[in-house]
């Protein structure tokens, strides 16, 4: 193979504007984060949708997190259209699973399904950076972080998307307490985790132009999924 470009699209002169090459991806950016706790999981995402390199805002409110039929939550960032397509495929597979097995798919099983779905498009990937949050078989909160071709790992706290590099070290600091100076403390309560999430996104919004407008929190517990909405900077 000459190059490692994901796709070679042959485009006919009738359909392509002359002089401009067709590119199948757009970066609609945005940020998604997830933190898992003892019996809950908090997923968060901003609701801004930008266009291309980011100086244009398509809309200030376009949710990029979706509650799935089995009670988990899938957050997407990157190319929004690919995110939507991925959600459609995953929802379809969840429904088939329910009809075939007469039960809902577990979150760890869904995590594996999501991985192979992404990898099935290894050479024309979904340009989506996704996080999956939910409860595992024992009822503990769990967050799975992915790359766009399906590598994944369960984690305590994960941030991805355009503001991911700003938020991740802060989550390490507050949730993992990775630095030697940090004091190890008891597992985090839901209120603490929500506060960390809100701080993360207000901070990322200060410096990342593609993150902002509103923050949505999906709080996953055994009782179901609660959604909360907060304001972020709109500039």
């Amino acid at each position: 193979m000459d190059s490692f470009l994901p796709v070679q699209v042959s485009w006919t002169p009738q359909t392509a504007a002359s002089g401009s090459d067709f590119y199948p991806y757009t970066n609609n950016a945005g940020t998604v984060a997830g933190i898992s706790g003892g019996d809950f999981c908090v997923m968060a995402a901003d609701t801004r949708q930008s266009f291309g390199v980011g100086y244009l805002i398509n809309t200030r409110y376009q949710p990029k997190m979706f509650k799935l039929s089995n009670g988990s939550v899938l957050g997407t960032s990157g190319f929004y259209a690919d995110g939507l397509t991925l959600i459609k495929r995953i929802n379809q597979r969840l429904e088939w699973y329910k009809h075939a097995h007469d039960k809902e798919m577990s979150t760890p099983a869904l995590a594996q399904l999501l991985s192979i779905t992404l990898y099935s498009k290894r050479f024309f990937p979904y340009y989506a950076r996704v996080l999956l949050g939910g409860l595992d078989l024992e009822g503990h909160g769990v967050v799975y972080g992915y790359d766009s071709i399906g590598s994944y790992e369960p984690c305590l706290a994960r941030a991805t998307g355009s503001g991911g590099s700003l938020i991740q070290p802060f989550l390490d600091n507050q949730i993992y307490r990775k630095t030697p100076l940090g004091i190890l403390q008891a597992p985090h309560t839901l209120d603490q985790v929500k506060a960390v999430m809100r701080d993360s996104f207000t901070s990322a919004t200060e410096r990342d132009i593609q993150t902002g407008d509103y923050l949505e929190l999906f709080i996953i517990t055994a009782q179901g999924v609660d959604v909360e909405k907060y304001d972020l900077r709109k500039d």
Partner: peptide
């Protein structure tokens, strides 16, 4: 730089005393 700015924004607050600033 990204990681620094993200963490600074979250942890910093005005009028820190020297020891707080060090931490």
């Amino acid at each position: 730089e990204d990681q620094l700015y993200g963490t600074c924004e979250a942890l910093w607050e005005p009028n820190l005393e020297p020891e707080e600033l060090f931490e």
